[in-house]
Amino acid sequence: MRTLSMSEKPVRLAVAGAIGLAVVAGGAAVADAATGTVRTSGANLTVRTGPGTGYGAVGTVSKGQKVNIICQTYGSTVRGTYGTSNIWDKIGTGRYVSDAYIYTGSDGMVAPKCGGGSTNPAPTGAIKDDYPYRGATSGVDRWNFYKGQCTSFAAWRVNHNLGIKFTNQYKGQHWGNANHWDNAARGAGIPVSGTPHVGDIAVRNSGTWGHVAYVAKVNRDGSFMVEEYNHVRPDTYSYRKATKGEGSDQFSQFIHFRR
């Protein structure tokens, strides 16, 4: 099994040019405001004073009711009608609902970010191209991976989103190419399974170099949304829906850096 050395750079770590996949470069474009429809199993959806289940309840909205989304932010992760999400929709002053129960036609943000700054208290929030080496096509990053590659972006997510000081020599293992990451994780005592969770690193072992991506959302149907670099286009960010499997657009293993 080949691993990445500092003296050579693979052409890329994943197949580019997948047809029909949505690409978000620099985050999804959003309108000034948006509307959504409450979709629950039947019960009313709780409205809270802030973006999280730890905030107090200030009322409910009923199934089928349309809501005006003033802005959106990140908060606690909720599993709902539309999978697992940490996006929260502000529908009034001091009134927030989980986007996991709101149909907006998108898995990402559809309205401006509340406050315009970073209000993400959750370690797994992301869904934007905040990679510090955006646009780089060569050179070594601060984690000892090559800039613009899927492994470098995944290392950024583990460090930035999960707060783990991960590098190419983490816990006595050389992580190297993407198709070695699941074995390196097992060697480091980090759980690996065939089931994705928000915050996991998804691994595809097929192909010359394999591919890794960050699981940003898990959908109700078992599919999941991933953030990645160097897959849809070389050295470029993308956000797309994926499924479990061995195909070039799929993933079979999931590293649970956060147990």
Rank of each mutant, 00 (worst) to 15 (best):
A25L: 13
N144I: 09
E246H: 14
I127H: 05
G135F: 11
G194A: 15
I127Y: 02
I19F: 14
F251S: 07
V47F: 04
Q65T: 11
P234Y: 06
N68P: 06
V215H: 01
G56K: 08
Y103D: 13
F254P: 04
K128F: 11
G20C: 09
D221P: 07
T77W: 00
G27F: 03
C71F: 09
N179R: 08
I127V: 14
A136V: 13
G75M: 04
K241N: 10
A34T: 04
A202R: 00
Y101V: 03
Y101M: 11
Y237E: 01
Y170E: 06
T49Y: 11
S152N: 08
R39T: 04
S76T: 03
A136I: 12
H211Y: 06
S138F: 09
N44Q: 15
W156K: 01
A185T: 04
N159H: 03
D99R: 04
Y96V: 03
K66W: 04
A122S: 15
S106A: 08
A100G: 02
F153S: 09
K241D: 07
V198G: 08
H231R: 00
P112V: 05
G80D: 06
G59K: 07
S41Y: 13
T124E: 03
K165V: 12
G116S: 10
I102W: 04
A31S: 14
A28N: 14
S106L: 10
K147R: 02
D249F: 01
D107M: 10
N120H: 12
T49A: 15
Y82W: 14
R204E: 09
V78F: 01
M109C: 11
W181T: 08
K128P: 01
T208K: 09
K147G: 01
A154Q: 02
R259L: 10
R95F: 12
S238K: 09
T53G: 12
P234R: 05
T243A: 02
D200Q: 00
P191Y: 00
P112G: 00
V58A: 00
Y170V: 07
T236P: 09
G92T: 12
R95A: 15
I91Y: 05
D141C: 13
G135T: 09
I190L: 09
I102L: 01
T35V: 15
I127M: 14
V67H: 04
V218S: 03
T104I: 07
